[in-house]
Design a protein around this nucleic acid. Structure first.
Lengths: 241, 241
DNA sequence: CAGTGGTCTAGACCACTCA
DNA sequence: GAGTGGTCTAGACCACTGC
């Protein structure tokens, strides 16, 4: 129960030394820390020990190693405040934070919903849905992947408007004349799937926030079910009651 | 951008093999997977390679290695649904989920607030606060650490009631005749600090959800500022609008 | 005591980046 | 081609668990 576990953990000392130097600014943001071999010489330890220290720092979100280049100090991530209310949208939130943003449609399909989607959207067995996968950027950096599912019947011929994709909500407003209203959301901390970490360009050990939401048509019926997977180190979600 | 990165990643293959066997039930929940040396023999690889595979599985939340004992498959964590509204409390939420729960007061102090606490509680420079650290258990397992700060003036002589600590809200209700009301909360995914991982008995790579909340007195003034750090793999927070 | 996971060394080859 | 991080081998000692 009361573990002691001190003594002779060189990799922890190396990690602490490096973090202290990042904190103090000796290694600045977006700069390189010394190479693995350099650190081996400095601390007179094996490369494996240095790599353990760097793995730890990577997990804690301090640095990102890049093959062939070096190990870079992550930019300070004062988290973006994302306000969740019945009305707020991604783009409005980013504009409130004064941030440049954009969205990219990775893929879309028209197909049968999964069981979960069917339940959340209150659909019958044979109805079809549009499934969109959207990658969102802030300041040119990818920050979230969202899978959005909408019933076919509510947004007929949606594909006609997807070629020039800017924002899902602008399409809905422009071509279907409505704004979805957030009905409920759940939050969960998780770790990225392989595909997430590739698209978001983060190591697999950085936590992500998964937000599942059900949005309603202004008339009250559920119209959109979305699952967003967001970099956890760059976000803070605010809910007011 | 389009990384290939396949070929010769033995540790990924080993991890996938083990995960497949956990999924299929070959290695059951709370059972041991084969020891590192055993896996070395099976796959004809170096122990370091096996350890990489296990590190990955640990990060992904599949197993927990215990020194001297073995590497155990984590119990399936269908997440607990935690409803956030202006009124819900920890204990009510757990009872709604039909779960046994308890709270333990780790520590308390009466001291000056930090700048952040002062702002959130709208206090003047010289006011004092009670700071409580509470560890909560569900089914006898620790799941969250909460630091709760309340202004001294609102709960005078609080220490008199802390000896027989069961639940903060029962003390407030019984001795101060009020129930705090949730005003706002922020969510963030994060990784545990060293102390968190010790108290929650989780590896440092399992994500946690940090929920910061401001609670109001029914009369409207802020009365409690709390920061809860919760195992991310066991929780889902639901917000309705 | 034997078996387990945790730490560390010494050295190898590879894939990638950049000048 | 020199330097970087990524993978892997071979072998050592330690701390901890259980019988």
């Amino acid at each position: 129960m009361f573990k002691v576990r001190e003594e002779s953990l060189q990799h922890l000392e190396i990690a602490e030394y490096l973090i202290k130097n990042i904190r103090s600014g000796t290694f600045g943001v977006n700069e390189k820390i010394p190479s693995e071999n350099e650190l081996c010489r400095q601390f007179q330890v094996n490369r494996h020990t240095v790599r353990q220290a760097i793995a730890r720092m990577t997990n804690l979100g301090w640095v990102t190693p890049l093959q062939g280049k070096g190990c870079y100090v992550n930019s300070l991530t004062r988290p973006i405040q994302y306000v969740l209310s019945s009305k707020t949208r991604f783009s409005e939130n980013m504009e409130n934070n004064g941030l440049k943003h954009k969205s990219k449609l990775l893929d879309w399909k028209k197909e049968r919903p999964t069981e979960e989607e069917r339940v959340n959207l209150e659909l019958s067995e044979d109805e079809m849905v549009y499934r969109l996968e959207i990658l969102r950027y802030v300041d040119e950096k990818p920050i979230s992947i969202t899978t959005t599912v909408m019933p076919d019947k509510e947004v007929p011929f949606l594909e006609a408007y997807l070629n020039e994709f800017k924002s899902l909500y602008s399409i809905l407003l422009e071509h279907y004349q409505f704004r979805p209203i957030r009905f409920r959301s759940t939050f969960q901390a998780s770790l990225p799937m392989l595909r997430d970490s590739e698209l978001l360009e983060i190591p697999e050990s950085i936590p992500i926030v998964q937000i599942e939401s059900v949005m309603n048509h202004p008339s009250g019926s559920p119209i959109e079910y979305s699952v967003a997977r967001i970099r956890g180190d760059m976000h803070k979600c605010l809910v007011e009651f």
